[in-house]
Design a protein around this nucleic acid. Structure first.
Length: 933
RNA sequence: GGGCCAUUAGCUCAGGUUGGUUAGAGCGCACCCCUGAUAAGGGUGAGGUCUGUGGUUCGACUCCACAAUGGCCCA
């Protein structure tokens, strides 16, 4: 063995093997924080923004997260996606200035603060409670900001917009002034969701549906003699066996507490109703009216009864009749309502316009009185008679059922489990109350029509977003803007003490807005009315100066609905935004609220494009919940996998639909990450001795290198286009295919011989390096929006002489300008790649790569093309010799055979050895290189 | 209960703008090669009734209807 070693010396030291400081192992969780500090210290984002200064900035307007807790994977998806597109545009030469924002007012924070303090909101003075809420919101803002920065997101983190800033509060009130001036705001009685626990009206968005068990009651609404005659006549006089039995309508409700406010009974006008002769188990008999379709169901619930059908008619025929209330003093009108369904109950539904939106609508349409005998705490008022003082959610149902049973009007009461509206924060059931609230009208000034029309002018991603938004606007009721809470921005309304006028005057609103900008909105609680009003302002109706401020705050969806007015509109942050990007729940939320305020105040949408994302779900496709045990906190994921792997995960999925995440999914992404990282590492390793001035001009590159250049430029073009069109997954697929298939398995593999065994400064080697440097820059730039940490790390590992003073990967261009590629380059590339694949497929049979010589035969044209590649064809096939012959047949075929040569101890190709007696085991070219060292 | 969206190999996704030969890729897995990208690299292979059921058609993963499962929004 010793003699063998001396006979065949080790030439390893004479080769140009890769060297790089870019480590193979990423250690992302440990290294990423230092990268963030470096970006901040060197003001990388700000400097690129400044150098991109010309032209209109590209603005992705940030939808504000709610500052009331930690961050989950949904937050990660949201903010990182935004960051990716911000960086795409940054690298693409635009000033993509990202101003992050936070939604900081509102009930959830107020609740969280009260819980934190352990007190009830009535026990804390408003100004003090507001200060505590502010502290709490700022506390969460800091935590969230740190995490967003930890994700690697670029943005103006030191100057975010916050809905609690006095300037923002001023914008909110100015927006109300604009709306008031144009006649959008009105005060109206409305049946609104009302939370008796929190004592506030709730927006639709503040409602969640949960299962709830209610007593489902069948109640007798008796008719007196006159009413009886009238009702019987409505059965077309076909009633012969009625005798003188008493008559009643059998009504149904799942909210017995609404009975004191029940002033109507609704029938489905198209359904059939029967007049039934009822024999009760106890012995009595009477006549009852209810839906025929529900007869069996009713009999099943009122045991021991039998019924005989005397006559039938339609619901429409019964409308206009009247019966007595089962216990109140007033009469109840029979009305029609299309929503009355015949699946459960009796088809005769109690209607309390003060306690339900449908009932309210029916009441208004049919002229019923709007009765609301329930106060803000859910207690019956004196208007409810004997039930005065009972609470509708606690004891009213039981007491009312008991009373019905006692006075003989209850047929049946059974527990009924159904989906019922609950408060989103305290999770208690909510009720409806008719209360006086401020509304934004959607049909004033053709707002609804103009909005649905202009929805078509926005580019929606995915495309179905347009239809979804259009339907959303078409079906939306007027927007209830007022809330009866403390932590928010006051609605600048005053009530006249003399004439009772409710005043929301634009002039007053602008005055208040200016005061808020200067002093903050808390002055609404600490200043008296005269100080808040413009000098000499009097009631526009009666001229009285005795005005009292209202204590309503504005819906927080209105606050976030005017972020476009608060944040955009300057030269640096122009209005409208280029893009809004949020989860698909925001079609109903922020996309819509911004659209409506913008259409009303500015006349056009606040965005040109809208991107919506799916939901982050667990590996089985189920929603994530802390209580379900499948919840992943954003910081935990980053600490485990590193932000860059998490960021790559986002590119690996189709974010427009729901995206799954879990340990095995992220492990897969981790493998792809290592691929992408090692490709760049290998390329950088081969550039350790390369200098920019050694770059070989395109026209003198090796043929295969020119093809590689062309293929790389095509990739960059394709990726850049996909990036600009938000097709992130296409970038991911294109990059991983390129890096694995074109580079690792083909080009880089082929290049090793030339890079390693040529003389360091040989033109051929510099040609390869020239192209490798171009590929490296291309890849790092394309990686940077997604793999921000790793791309930057790679860039910092490039020898400074090669980097030429470019400090950061974020100073590169997304797509380097380049000359047109040679005609058909991609086809030639594929052709050669295909031949190389054939070689590889046969190496197991025929021998190792370099042990082979290839005999390629092709039609004349193809042969000419292949011959044009010169020795690069041999190199690309990784064989020791290659001959091309032109045949007459179409296409290309190849034969492989063993070479005659011996293995060169230095380059490992099989060639004639020993031309230089000093180096007997080495081929001619290698001997020459070695001699020159 | 209604609207919208999704459902293609173990996982993440392509695909077919006009339905037409053996539905593709990466990762994982199994086996093999290399050891001068080495806590790397290369090759080969096994995995799919394209969620299900009907329908239209000479022919459907692709069009239509219904259903299931999951998601978002609403009631």
């Amino acid at each position: 063995m010793a003699t063998e070693a001396t006979k065949r010396p080790d030439y390893r030291g004479t080769l140009n093997l890769p060297q790089t400081e870019f480590p193979m192992k990423a250690n992302l969780p440990q290294r990423e924080p230092a990268r963030i500090a470096w970006w901040a210290e060197h003001r990388i984002y700000q400097r690129r923004l400044e150098s991109n200064g010309e032209g209109r900035p590209w603005i992705l307007h940030d939808g504000p997260p709610y500052a009331n807790g930690g961050l989950h994977m949904g937050h990660f998806l949201n903010k990182v996606l935004k960051d990716i597109f911000v960086k795409v545009n940054l690298l693409d030469g635009r000033a993509s200035r990202f101003v992050p924002g936070w939604d900081m007012h509102g009930l959830p924070i107020e609740m969280e603060t009260l819980k934190h303090l352990g007190v009830h909101f009535r026990s804390v003075p408003p100004a003090e409670l507001r200060e505590k809420c502010r502290e709490r919101a700022l506390y969460w803002l800091d935590i969230q900001r740190d995490l967003f920065m930890r994700m690697g997101c670029f943005g103006l983190w030191e100057a975010p917009y916050r809905t609690i800033d006095p300037s923002f509060e001023g914008t909110i009130v100015d927006a109300l002034a604009d709306l008031a001036q144009q006649g959008y705001l009105y005060k109206g009685l409305r049946s609104t969701y009302w939370c008796p626990t929190d004592e506030t009206a709730l927006a639709d968005a503040e409602i969640e549906y949960r299962d709830h068990v209610s007593p489902s009651v069948y109640v007798r609404f008796p008719a007196d003699a006159a009413q009886r005659g009238d009702l019987l006549s409505r059965f077309d006089g076909q009633v012969s066996e009625a005798g003188d039995l008493p008559l009643a309508v059998m009504c149904w409700t799942t909210t017995p507490w609404s009975l004191p406010g029940t002033v109507g009974v609704a029938f489905n006008p198209e359904a059939e109703y029967g007049l039934f002769r009822f024999r009760h188990a106890a012995g009595g008999e009477d006549l009852l009216i209810f839906a025929t379709a529900l007869l069996e169901s009713v009999l099943a619930r009122v045991p021991g009864t039998t019924a005989q059908t005397l006559a039938t008619t339609t619901g429409a025929h019964l409308v206009g009749g009247e019966v007595h209330h089962p216990f109140m003093e007033f009469m109840v009108r029979l009305v029609d309502a299309p929503y009355v369904e015949l699946e459960t109950g009796t088809g005769a539904v109690t209607t309390a316009p003060g306690h339900g939106p449908e009932d309210f609508e029916t009441g208004v349409r049919c002229g019923l009185p709007i009765v609301t005998p329930v106060n803000e705490r859910g207690d019956f008022t004196a208007e409810a008679g004997i039930f005065h003082g009972l609470n509708v959610l606690r004891d009213a149902n039981a007491k009312i059922v008991e009373h019905l049973r006692a006075n003989g009007t209850l047929y049946c009461s059974v527990d009924y489990s159904h989906s019922y509206a609950h408060c989103w924060r305290c999770h208690n059931p909510v009720i409806f109350r008719a209360t006086s609230q401020w509304f934004m009208a959607l049909d004033v000034n053709h707002l609804r029509r103009r909005t649905t029309e202009q929805v078509a002018d926005v580019r929606w991603h995915p495309a179905w977003g347009e239809e979804r938004m259009r339907l959303m606007i078409e079906n939306h009721p007027d927007w209830c803007l007022s809330r009866q809470r403390t932590w928010g921005t006051p609605i600048p309304a005053f009530d006249c003490q003399e004439c009772g006028a409710e005043i929301l005057d634009p002039r007053v609103a602008r005055h208040v807005a200016a005061l808020f900008r200067e002093h903050g909105a808390t002055i609404w609680w600490t200043w008296d009315a005269p100080r808040l009003l413009p000098a000499e302002f009097c009631c526009p109706q009666c001229g009285s100066a005795k005005l009292k401020k209202e204590m309503n705050i504005v819906d927080i969806w209105f606050e976030s609905g005017v972020t476009h007015l608060a944040v955009l509109g300057s030269e640096q942050m122009p209005w409208p935004a280029d893009v809004y990007l949020e989860g698909s729940d925001q079609y109903r939320g922020w996309f819509r609220s911004n659209l409506l305020t913008s259409m009303a105040i500015k006349g056009t949408p606040p965005y040109r494009e809208v991107v919506s994302t799916g939901w982050v779900v667990d590996p089985e496709g189920r929603a994530m919940h802390k209580s379900a045990g499948n919840y992943i906190a954003a910081d935990d994921a980053m600490n485990t996998y590193g932000a860059d792997v998490m960021r790559l995960w986002i590119a690996s999925v189709d974010y427009e639909a729901d995206v799954r995440v879990g340990a095995s999914i992220l492990a897969n992404v981790g493998e792809v990450y290592r691929n992408l990282r090692n490709r760049v590492r290998f390329i950088l390793g081969n550039l350790f001795d390369f200098l920019p001035q050694q770059t070989v001009p395109a026209d003198r590159l090796h043929p295969i290198d020119r093809l590689a250049l062309a293929v790389t430029d095509a990739l960059a073009e394709r990726c850049a286009r996909a990036y600009r069109e938000f097709r992130l997954h296409d970038v991911y697929l294109a990059l991983s295919n390129f890096v694995n298939d074109d580079l690792s398995a083909f080009y880089l593999d082929a290049l090793k011989d030339r890079l390693y065994s040529s003389a360091a400064g040989a033109t051929g080697r510099r040609s390869a390096q020239s192209v490798l440097w171009h590929i490296a820059k291309t890849l790092m730039a394309l990686y940077a929006p997604v793999l921000s940490f790793s791309a930057e790390e790679a860039w910092q590992s490039v020898p400074p002489s090669l980097r030429e003073g470019v400090d950061s990967v974020f100073f590169l261009k997304l797509e380097e300008p380049h000359e047109a590629s040679p005609e058909g380059a991609a086809a030639v590339w594929s052709l050669v790649k295909g031949l190389r694949a054939q070689v590889k497929a046969q190496t197991a049979v025929e021998g190792r790569d370099f042990e082979l010589r290839a005999l390629v035969s092709a039609d004349a044209a193809t042969a000419a093309t292949l011959e044009g590649l010169g020795d690069d064809l041999r190199e690309a096939l990784v064989v020791s010799a290659c001959d091309v012959t032109a045949g007459s047949e179409n296409g290309v075929s190849m034969e492989l055979a063993r070479t005659d040569g011996e293995k060169c101890a230095r380059c490992w190709k099989y060639l004639a050895l020993g031309a230089d007696p000093a180096h007997p085991f080495v081929c001619g070219p290698c001997a020459e290189v070695v001699r020159s060292l």
